[in-house]
Simulated scan of single mutants.
Amino acid sequence: MSTLLEEVVQAHGGIDNWTKFDTATAALDIGGAVWHLKGQPDMFQGIELTASLRRQHVEITSPTAGWQGTFTPDAVRYGSLNNQAAVERRAPRESYQGHTQQTEWDRLHALYFTGYALWTYLTIPFLYTYPGFRTEELPEWHENGEVWRRLKVTFPDSIASHSREQISYFGEDGLLRRHDYTVDVMGGAQGANYASDYRNVRGVMVPMSRRVFAYDEARRKVDEPLLVSIDFREIDFQTE
């Protein structure tokens, strides 16, 4: 584990504390321009989730809209809360072949994207200590009057995520400030994901708010439009 990774893992609560927990539960709202572009504007408002912290498995429920969905890298399933008229897609990533940033999604497309994205966000930076991940510290970055240390992370093929290579930025306190990636399932769209409003949840520092923008060739944030907003209303960690 690199020195920077060791420091940021400790700042977020420490690996010994993290390994006590097996699952995360949360209530949250997701919005932003991407969902209108993709034809699913309100799908993830007022949702609840349960996520495994050791493997990629996320269950998402919308109590008000009356649906539930399950994400794994190999399959997504969507249906009503009474399990009627459920639909499933195997090898879901293959269904994005030929997609551009403007291609509309069905609900299974949206569920796969949201499932892997939330799982990634909930587990960073501890995720980077899991088997198969490779990290490299990059030169410092100046933004918002702060100096941020940067970690380039190469994901193993076994993990579904935005892209194989991603960059995380950490403040002087060791907490995640920004997370950059390209989105393979959106034709390589770029995302700068800003984390804020930290809360200590059972000893783990969790950003309760995320805001995603595009970035330009110099990696400078493009302020408009707000692509994705994520606001956690509640979050907790459990042991099985």
Rank of each mutant, 00 (worst) to 15 (best):
D106W: 05
R107T: 12
H109A: 13
L111W: 13
Y112N: 09
T114P: 03
G115I: 05
G115S: 11
G115F: 07
A117V: 10
W119G: 07
W119T: 05
T120M: 06
I124G: 00
I124F: 03
F126D: 00
F126P: 01
Y128F: 15
T129M: 05
Y130R: 13
G132F: 13
F133S: 04
L138A: 09
E140D: 15
W141Q: 02
E143V: 10
N144Y: 11
N144W: 11
N144R: 11
G145C: 02
G145R: 02
E146A: 14
E146W: 02
R149W: 06
R149D: 04
R150Y: 01
K152D: 02
V153N: 02
V153M: 04
T154G: 02
D157Q: 08
D157L: 05
A160M: 03
S161Y: 06
E165C: 08
Q166L: 04
I167E: 12
Y169T: 00
F170G: 03
G171I: 00
G171L: 07
L175C: 03
R177D: 04
R177M: 08
R178W: 05
D180M: 08
T182S: 15
D184N: 14
G188W: 11
G191P: 02
G191N: 08
A192F: 09
A192Q: 13
N193S: 13
A195W: 08
S196T: 09
Y198L: 07
R199V: 12
N200A: 14
R202I: 00
